[in-house]
Amino acid sequence: MSINLARSRASTRAAAPQPTADRAKPYYRSYVPYMFLIPGLVLYLIWTVYPLAYQLYISFFDWRIIPGQTSTYVGFANYEAVFADRTFWLAMRNTALYAVVTVAGQMIIGLTLAFLVNRVAIGKRFFRTVYYLPVVTSWVVVSFLFVYLFSPGDAGLINFILTKLGTITKPISWLATADTAWIAIYSLGIWKGIGWAMVIFLAALQGIPPELYEAAAIDGASEWQRIRYMTLPLIQRTLFFVLIALMIGGFQVFVSVLLITGGGPLHRTEVALTYMFDEAFGQLHFGYGAALSYVLAIVIVVVSALQARLFGRGDKDVEY
C-alpha cells in the first residue's frame, strides 16, 4: 500500500505542472476506482439485480417454499394464469384508478397551494412546514388513523363533520362497502402526498425571476393569462417530473389498502400489490406471485415510458 502511494505521489508530482499530462497518466492506480465502487455495487447486485433475475426464474415454477417439497417447472403457466385471473384484472383496474384519482388530486391541490404559498405575505415557511407533516408520518400510522377518522357511527370525525355540514343525514359505515372504502383510501393517498408535490412546485415557482412577472404585468396580462401562458410553461418540466413520480408511487399503493380494507370485501378493493402479497405470503403461491410481480413491474415501466413520450416532448422548462 505504501509503495503504491509513493508511486502515485511521484507520478502526481511529475505531472502536476501540466494538466494534460496529468489526465493522460492519472495519479491513482487502476484498481483505485473499483475499491470505491465495489462494496456498494456488490450489495446492490446481491439484493436487487440478482433478485430481479431470480424472480424471473421463480415465475416459471410451481414454487414450493416449504422444505422437503420440490418445485416443478411449469413454463409460462403462471403468466397464463395471471392473465386469465379475473381478480388480477380487477386489482389492476383498481390500481390504475387509484393512481389516476390520487395523482390528479395531489397535483391540482399541490399546485394550487404552491401558488398561494408563493403569494402569501407572511408565514411562507410555516405553511410549507405544516403541509409537509403528513408526508413524513408513517404509512402504517396514517392508515390506522384514517380507519379511525372514517369510523362508522356518529362519533367518527368524518361522519360528525359531514352531519354537521348537512351533507349526510345519517352516519355512513365507510369501510363496509367498496365504493365508500375507496373514498377513505383515496383521501388518504391525496392527503399524505399533497405536501410533497407542493414543496417541489413551490421551489419551481420561486425559481422564476420576478422581473418576468413585472414585464407581464406591464404588458397588461391578467392574473390568469400570466399563469396560463407564462408560469405553467415555465414549470412544465417540473409538472411532468411530479406526474411521473406520483404515478409510479400510485401503482405501488400497498400498505394503506392492506391496513384499511385488506383488499375486501370479497377482493373488491384489491390492488396489484395486496393481491401479489396475498397470493405469495397468504396462499404460498410464490411462482404465481413472482409472475404477477413481473407483470406489475413491466406495467409501471411502460406507463412511465408512455408518459415520457406523451408529455415529454417539450422536455425542458423554457430557458430564461
Binding site: Y44, I46, W47, T48, V49, Y50, P51, L52, Y54, Q55, I58, I65, I248, F251, Q252, F254, L273, M276, F277, A280, F286, G289, A290, S293, Y294, L296, A297, I300, V301, S304
Partner: peptide, 17 residues
C-alpha cells in the same frame, strides 16, 4: 435503469434469498 424498477416488486425473491 434499475432506478425505474420499484423495489416492492422484488419482495418475493428477496424473501427467498
Amino acid at each position: 435503469l434499475m432506478i425505474m424498477i420499484p423495489g416492492v416488486v422484488l419482495l418475493i425473491p428477496q424473501f427467498i434469498l
